[in-house]
Each structure stands twice: as C-alpha cells, then as structure tokens.
Design a protein around this nucleic acid. Sequence first.
DNA 1: TCCCTCTGAGAAAACCTTTTCCCAAATCGC
DNA 2: GCGATTTGGGAAAAGGTTTTCTCAGAGGGA
Lengths: 348, 348
Amino acid sequence: MSADAEPAPVSVKPPVTLREVAAAAGVSVATASKALNGQGRMTAETRERIRETARLLGFRPNHLAQSLLRKRSFTVGLLTNDTYGRFSLPLMAGVSDALVDNGVSVFLCNVEDDTRLGQLHVEAMLDKRVDGIIATGKRIDRHLPVDLSNLRVPVVYAFTQPDPGAVGLVSDDAGGARLAVEHFCRLGRRRIAHVSGPASFAVVHARAEAYRDVLKEQGLPVAEPLLGAWSEAWGHEAVAKLFEGRGERPDAVFCGNDQIARGVIDALRERGIRVPEDVGVIGFDNWEIVAEATRPPLTSVDMNLSTLGREAGLALLSLVGGQPAAPGIRKLPCRLVVRQSCGRPPGG
Amino acid sequence: MSADAEPAPVSVKPPVTLREVAAAAGVSVATASKALNGQGRMTAETRERIRETARLLGFRPNHLAQSLLRKRSFTVGLLTNDTYGRFSLPLMAGVSDALVDNGVSVFLCNVEDDTRLGQLHVEAMLDKRVDGIIATGKRIDRHLPVDLSNLRVPVVYAFTQPDPGAVGLVSDDAGGARLAVEHFCRLGRRRIAHVSGPASFAVVHARAEAYRDVLKEQGLPVAEPLLGAWSEAWGHEAVAKLFEGRGERPDAVFCGNDQIARGVIDALRERGIRVPEDVGVIGFDNWEIVAEATRPPLTSVDMNLSTLGREAGLALLSLVGGQPAAPGIRKLPCRLVVRQSCGRPPGG
DNA sequence: TCCCTCTGAGAAAACCTTTTCCCAAATCGC
DNA sequence: GCGATTTGGGAAAAGGTTTTCTCAGAGGGA
C-alpha cells in the first residue's frame, strides 16, 4: 500500500436500492418488489429469501420514487400564522401524532400575517406534492392571509376561519363557557361575573352568550360581561370595576383567558379578598404554565387543542384517501380542568 | 344532453408536465428542460418561446422527479423534544426563515423524550430523503433521545447537546449573564444577588460563574447564588431568604429566568420593597409575555434564539452543499432587553 | 469542391420503484 | 400422452425530470 494513498473520503455510501437487493437474491427487481410488498405470486421460500436479503442489506425503499409513481407523497403541510403560539403548538402535536402512525410527515410553515410569504410556502408545498394541507391560526374568526380555496389538494381548517364549503374544526367555546359557569353554579356560587377579551373576537361573544344562557337557566342574576383585553392588566382593572361599585359583589369570576384570570386573582389578593373562599375564579385556555403558577392554581377550560389537531389530521387523511367529508364547521368539546381557584362544593 | 348525464366529477386536472410544455412549444422535452433551466444552447427566440409556453400553461416542475434525479430533496428535518416549547418555536422560526428563501421546506418532528418515537421519525425523514437534520431541544446539556451520529445526512445541533465531533450552536449563557450583571454595575448597584434554577442544569453553573467573575472584576461582594427551581414560587422563596436574614440586603437581583424574576418582583412588592427604586431585577429568556406582564416590565437577557435557528439553518445548508464546517460548539451572543425593572443610571 | 468546426436541437439513459402484461414450466383432467 | 390450466417469475413501461451523447445542417477556410 503506497504511503500517499488517498485518505478514504468521508463520503457515506449511497443507499442500497431495490436493484441491488434483487441482484443479491438472484431475482429480478419486479420479483423483489413484489416479495417485499406482499404482492404477486411466488413460493414462500423465494419471498422469504428476498426479504431476508433486503433486511441484511438494510434496504429502505426510496420514498421519492414511490411517491412519483403513486402520486402520493405521504407528506402534508401545516400552515399557521401563530408564530409563538401556544395554540398551534398543541394542535401540531395532535396533528403529528395522528399522522406519524400512517407514515405521513408534516411540513411546518409559519406564514406570519404575510400574504407573500404565505403564497411562497403554499407553492413550495404544492411543488413538493404534499397530499394535503392543514390550515391553523391564532384565532377562530380570522382567515389566514392566503387563499386555499382552489388547490389541487384537500384542505382542512383547524382553529382558524375556514373557507365556505370547506372542512373546519374548531373548539366549542360556548360549550366550554357552559362548563365553567355550570361548575360555579354547582358549587353554590350565585353572583357570577364574566371578564373577557376584546369585543372584536368572535369567541368573546360566544362565551358571553353561553354565560348569560346558563345564568338565566339557573335563575341567577346576569351581569353584563366586562370586555377589555387579553391581559393581566385588564384583569386588575376589571377587579377594580367589580369590587369598587356599591352594588352586590360577585362571589365568582369567569375569565376569558388565563392571563386575565391571573390578573384577577392577584388583584383580589391585593384587596384582601380570598380565593377561592370569598371569590372563585375560572380561566380559559388552560395554559398550564400560567394556571399552575397562579396562587392558588387556576381552574381553567381546556380547548383540547391536541385532540382538535388529531381530528384534523384524521379528517385530512380520509380526504386524501378519497373519502368525501361533510363540509362545514365541526365543534369539538372543551373540558374543565379543576384546580383550586374555584373552591369546593359546600359540603365537599 | 341526456337528463341522467353523470355530474362532472370534482376531480381537478392533473398538473401540467414538462412533456406537455414541450409538445405545446413544438420541441423535445430535453430542449424544454434546458430552456427553462438556462442550460444548453439554443436561439434566444426558442428559449423565450418555451418559457412563455410554460408560463401560459402554468407549468411547475415536479420536485419529486427532480429530487429523485438530483439526489437532493430540498427538505430538512427539524427534530425537537420541546413539545410546548418557547425555546424551539423561535428557533424554528429562524430555521424556517433561513431556509425558505432557498426553497427548502422543513419537516417538524416532535419526539418528546421517547426513543422509539425518535427512531420512527428519523427513519421516516431518512426514507423521505431529507437533505439534512437539525436537532434542537429544551435544554443545552441533554441529548435528544435518539442517536444521530452515523446518519447518511449532515446534522446540526442547535440549543441541544451535540454529539462529539458534530456541529453545534448554543447560546452564550455566560456572556448573557455578564450583560446583566455588568448592566447592574453600570447602574451603580453594589449588592447584587443571583437567584437561579436547579443545579442539575449546566446553564445554571455557567451563568453563576459569569456572575461571580463580574463581581470580582468590579470589586463587589460576591454572594453565593441561590439555586432552586425555574418557578415563580422559588422566586418568592428566594426573596424570603434574601430579605429576612440580618445581613446586608441586596439592591439588585439577577434571576435565572423570567418566571423566577416574576416571582421575585411580586414578592418584593408584597414586602413593600420598590422595584426598581430599592431593588433592581433582571431576568433571563426574555419571554415577552411574562416580561411585559410583570409590574414593572422586566428587563431580561434574550438568547436570540431566532438568530440561533437562522445560523443553524445556514450551517446545515452549507454542509448539505458540501462545504466542510468546523465541528465543535459555537456560542452565539445574547442581548439585554432593557425594560423598567432594573432602574436607570443615577443621573439618568 | 472538400473538409472541418460550430450551432441548435433531439434521442436516450438515468434516478428508483411499481405494476401490468407475458411466458415457460409444471400440474391437472381425461 | 395430450390439451388446458395454474404457477412462479421476468420484461418492460410508467412516473417527470435532467443530462450526456449524438447528429444534421450551416458556415468557414483551403
């Protein structure tokens, strides 16, 4: 061996192909393909020998070639505009969870609120021949900044405003609000207030309406919901409004999100009002990192976003498979996660 | 037209292929390909005519076919175990940002802490012929639950523990801590305490050491850092320890993350200690939603994760392009985001 | 006029797998 | 023992693109 022999380049050897497997097993590629896919007819012995050869060689079929032929790439695109989103992340987890078992991978595309960027991403995904697209966002009542209505692939909308005639999945905000308010009622609270976000959000109205409905059903006094911002600061302010007037003071506050609830609880404590003894508080979103840091830990409505994502993934899958899906918006139930901020039943 | 004519199926027509473009332009596919890619030799007139035809027909090349031939799929995998992560999300945004301009799409895979799931995802990505993989996680000093050391594709580690000999990018935690402590010094604070997370985290030690170094350099008293948890509750506790002893009380607290800082600030206020007048507070992570909800808004060290992600994306790109990259860990600088919790300079 | 060199464009192989025929040998019925 | 059927397996096309090779014709020099 000469001294100046070239050092072996670090190049890894190329993946083994079906052709090599076939050669090693002494059959044609056609037979090899059929053996590995359980197709065609051959002796069990032949089939097993080919399979063993493939295993030994570490053969992995090239999905690019398969996709080209099958016209199905086993990839989907997930479009979102919720950059730092605590909404889209659990949702993505659910989507991914539903799809990975079917061998489907997910392209994640954050389009911000930028139409050009959205266009760019959609075209890139289409060029890569995704089987379908899931659109999601940071709020239910807004469209993504990109038109998905006439694509060559099926589209499912989850937690964002769907196009008319499309398949959409959202959380049942009214149902979630019912859960919270009815829980207060069961605990014997009688003067239940509602502090929520800006009136420009559709969910604010959906939840407020459910709030009113439950109170009416129960024959309890309905106070006008206080609408403001999705912030702790607004929670503070709202407490000032609720507890400084001369009217009867609430013994429970149902908040539009967890940050408001956090602000409410802090403000109540600063006023010497005990939570949950004097006033119960329930939040919305069940953002664990907030709910658990609150003192006391916050009872909150969970939108089951991960389930929502999973359902969206399954819906897209069946659409891709050619099953027609009923268009329209499907609402998925929320659940109440009880911690300590709402109190226990009188006798509990 | 008969009454029972079949309704036109909603089938969208298949994408137009290069062959069709060639036929429409009256040339061969070879010539068409070369015209569109700026390769080969032909009259400007021919090239332009083909391009125009392609544009008219809405031709988009099939990336699957291109990838198969070029052995380059223009996709990369992003592996993370930071499910609900505020770390990986900004990082992903940076990665995506760096790659989208190069026509590269990103597969997002959350592997939790599950080796089996990790294996599954990595194999799926490899089967789909990703050009490379970026590994990221929720802490710098832990490996992902999956071995990426002998893959056929380049791997870049960002904000997670790299394999030896690999390319890794992390934040410069010591540098970030210096920024915070030196800022306090410039503001004239003399008794600076440090409250941080659990001793099991490498970053806790890196930051604590930098904290000590700066104080020594400035000739200021060095107090032993208080190590606990990454929570608001620990921030409360730490304040109790710091302000209940008989020793001199700090006039500044440098916290290991924003949640601790939030707890510290709340606890100080509850004791009637003013922030920033009596005690300045600086956090770490610059988690905006926390930093801005804190009263007063929190000054915090930002790890520039989005830049980190962008650098990781570019590093992977050059690796994929065949450029050898220097292995080892590269630390990227943090930056201090000044809000109101640290106070202003004496004369400011 | 002959030979040589360009020029513009096409034919075909290659990438890797799946699937549809097709064929030879073996088996069966009688 | 002969035709019909079954069985096991292969050849080849298809999928859409890129790239190398080839080739016919045009132009130039001698």
